[in-house]
Simulated scan of single mutants.
Amino acid sequence: MSTPTGPNATVPPRPDARRNASPYLYGQEAAAVARVLESGQYGHSDVTEEFERGVAAFLGVPDAVAVASGTAALHTALLAAGIGPGDEVVVPSMTFCATVQAVLAVGAVPVFVDVDPATLCVTDRLVMEAVDASTAAAAVIPVLFGGRAVDLTTIRAELAARDVVVIEDAAHAFGSRTGQNEKVGASGDLTCFSFGPIKNLTCGQGGAVIPRTREEAAAIRRMRLLGVVQSQAERAATTRYRVEGFGLRYQMSSLTAAIGLAQLPHMADIERTRRTLWRSYQRALAGLDGVRLVDVDPDRSVPHLCQVRVPHRDQVFDELRARGIGVGVHYPPNHLQPAFARWKRPLPATEQVTEEILSLPFHQHLTETDIDHVVCALGQALGP
């Protein structure tokens, strides 16, 4: 792909591309939802459980527990791990606010940690510095930013010795692999996925927890349905059912599970397409001075975002939006948000990159021509 990028370059004609990301559907999703509608069973049902088995089989793990969202996955995983009031949870500020809200929902305290500017992910060194500085660290939530796996192999034994639980926020990373060539979710940690509208695999809305033990799986299944133990079918066949503990309405509906089941057989295509698009951006952006591409490790990841660091980010953002290009910012850092001000601490790398990061349009509707258009416009916005 050859993309003119100089100040006098002509932006290629813009095709009928979508301004912002939207779900990519393969054609079977509508029929799958219609079958559920016709069945009359719209809540948690055998379709949801079939989706759970499909996710577990794809990841090569014994079990997966489907829930209503990625946030619900984080919340129930923290509860299942025994994280509660007064516990400190090490979490990067560079994440969507849902990660932090899940920590607060269990009464725990966020300990914000910095990131590697090249990847926007935490590192083993940064995690251990935060754990050492914490007085009551009970958990670490590495965020697999953009789909990139976070390798904490060198400190796992030390974390375990301190009874610090690792709960992966893998909302961006369904299908990605670790440096040990395991699928994310198969590493033995509690892992939380999101299947929201524009995630690698979409259910329209939904999430899943990969538990470490049968006991954790049972606890999350109980919590996701208001503490009720029996399945829908079991409750329908009896005059009584049991509520055995605290719970929330976090179950995944059969309507959304049906969408996920229609998507799962296409994961190989999803992986291939997203890697191809990310590498196309990588080649096109190579000629732009002052642009640094955030590394998602595309050889192992299924990229969820394509982000660059640019000078004068706000000005570039405004100009590209004015041209109809759906750029964004992922994410304004949480330690600078009013809601989390009491836990603010200096995070120099995060504060630097937050003034530079720009998310380029990245979704499976994109074509090579779209990428040419975006990169050429970015070059013009940056100027000579």
Rank of each mutant, 00 (worst) to 15 (best):
R212K: 11
V184F: 06
T273G: 02
P117W: 00
Q282G: 03
N181L: 08
G196R: 12
A160K: 03
A130V: 01
L255D: 02
A137F: 04
G383K: 06
I198P: 06
M94T: 05
S69N: 07
Q263Y: 03
T239C: 00
T153D: 15
C376A: 14
E215I: 11
D87N: 09
M94W: 10
P348F: 08
A138W: 00
S176M: 07
V140N: 03
T5N: 07
V106G: 15
A98V: 13
G179M: 13
S176G: 11
I371M: 04
V103R: 09
R279L: 14
L226H: 14
V55F: 02
V47Y: 04
V140L: 02
G60N: 14
A57G: 02
P110N: 01
P211M: 10
A57T: 06
P298F: 07
A160D: 14
A136N: 13
E368D: 10
V243D: 08
A102F: 02
T213P: 08
E215Q: 14
V109H: 03
D87Q: 01
R35D: 07
M252Y: 10
T202E: 04
A186S: 15
L366I: 07
P311I: 15
F58M: 13
W278D: 09
V353H: 01
P311A: 14
T71I: 05
R222G: 02
L79E: 13
T350I: 01
F145M: 09
R279K: 15
L293V: 14
F145P: 04
Y26R: 09
R19V: 03
T119S: 12
G204R: 01
L378F: 00
R235A: 05
T202H: 05
P85K: 15
G40F: 09
V140D: 05
F246M: 15
